[in-house]
Amino acid sequence: MPQGTTEIPLKQQVLHENQRIAERLRNRYRDANLLCVNMISAPGSGKTSLLEKTLEILGDEASPLRVAVLTGDVQTDNDARRLARYGYPVKQITTGGCCHLDGSMIERHLADWDLSILDILFIENVGNLVCPASYDLGEHDKIVLLSVTEGEDKPLKYPSIFHKASLFLMTKVDLLGLVPFDALVAEQNAARIHDGIEVIRCSAVSYHGMEDWIRWLKKRLHAVRANNCRETVTH
């Protein structure tokens, strides 16, 4: 090293500020005893459509779960308007050009919400398969959606999100047979990046797989609450 040169250790996450906010959000979700899922996909893979059908099904149940949606978009509030029809609280986050949601956007939009009345908080991220993967929103689960019109190789091309997601929702499976897409190969590719990732094949048109998806949500909600309960006992 040349004279007068000093190496200063930084040892700091580039996203440490977002990480700090995510920690605060995690605490809020835990205090509210709710499940938060962060839904991530490329533009148009069917996030809003799936959420519409999810709200419709949940609303028809005998004792409906209490849910709410934050939906991110670069420009419009179309998605929020589509989702608001089901009578649940919905808020649009318009990022004004930003390609992902970050912790501070979530915190700002949740500021005046009483989370304690909720069972599940859905976050629909901005349509983008790369950038949202880097931003922790304090969620319990990242969920990646890939539609059958996008190609089986996408888990290999966008490994980060498949690595971090606990569930892979293969969407638009009503189109299988109409498009040359090998669902098994797509699942194998996802497993190469994330051994043991859960997969549900679903469709917002035919309702195929919707029961499995709702069951998955309830299973996760129970698991999160059981875990919160254990933590309360041990603390």
Partner: peptide, 13 residues
Amino acid sequence: DELEMESLEVVDG
């Protein structure tokens, strides 16, 4: 998936 700033090299002046 780490993305960490490890160190900063500075010179006098």
